[in-house]
Every structure is written in C-alpha cells, then in structure tokens.
Design a protein around this nucleic acid. Structure first.
Length: 112
DNA sequence: TCTATGACTCCGG
DNA sequence: CCCGGAGCCATAG
C-alpha cells in the first residue's frame, strides 16, 4: 500500500523534473527508481497521474520515442501538440531527433 | 488466492 | 531489417 504510493510519488517527482522541451522513456525512469525491469509500472503510474495534472506525462514516451500513451490522453493529438508546443517535432506518433531531446534521469540527476 | 492485463524492453529468428 | 515471443512487476477483477 504505502510502497505503491511511494513508487507513484517517485515517478511523479521524476516526471516533474523533466526539463522543458525534453523527453524521457519509461525504462529510464524505472531505472532511476531502481526498478529497471518495471518500465510497465511507470506506465501504470502515468495512468494514475490523471489525478495529478501537474505531471507532464506527455514528456514520457517509450524507448523509441514513440507516443505509445497518446491514446490515453483526452484528445487524439493532445500529446503531440503539447510536445510540439515545446519545440519537439512529432511525425507518425514518433519524436524526431529523439536522441537529442532524450533526457535520462539516471544520468542527469546523478552526475549533478 | 489465482489469473489476466498493460502508457515497456530485450532477444532471437 | 522486420516480426514475433518471452520476461518483468504491480494492479485489478
């Protein structure tokens, strides 16, 4: 019970730390949280983030930069528009130059 | 208590 | 290079 809340809270915390115009992957967050094999759980946490609008879930995509969670947003292209609004180009539900926009919490938050 | 499912990833053919 | 299957772990039914 408490652990799950802590897990969710951690996911939210990391999600909030994602810089403007940057994106990361579920696996990267999971790795940072110490549950690298639970990338799916990160997605689950995002699903629960509906109650926390402060969570920029649109900045979280799969490791290919694919907007897998796009369908989980209200609109059909809301996620894409939010990202494009941050200067990120989306094509075919995919983040262009994903490698350049990628933000790895495990590295970025650790080296500092 | 057990089974099914998923906003993922990795590995093999 | 593209496609399919298995692993992983937490939540819901």
């Amino acid at each position: 019970m408490k652990q799950s809340e802590n897990f969710f809270e951690k996911v939210y915390e990391v999600a909030k730390l994602i810089p403007f115009g940057r994106v990361t992957s579920y696996g990267a967050i999971a790795k940072y949280l110490g549950t690298a094999r639970s990338a799916r759980m990160v997605g689950w946490a995002m699903n629960a983030s509906h109650s926390n609008q402060d969570i920029p879930a649109h900045r979280v995509v799969n490791r290919n930069g694919l907007l897998t969670g796009k369908l989980h947003f209200d609109g059909t292209n809301l996620m894409q528009q939010l990202l494009e609004n941050e200067g990120i180009t989306i094509k075919e539900n995919q983040v262009q130059n994903f490698k350049e926009h990628f933000w790895d919490p495990y590295i970025e938050l650790n080296k500092k």
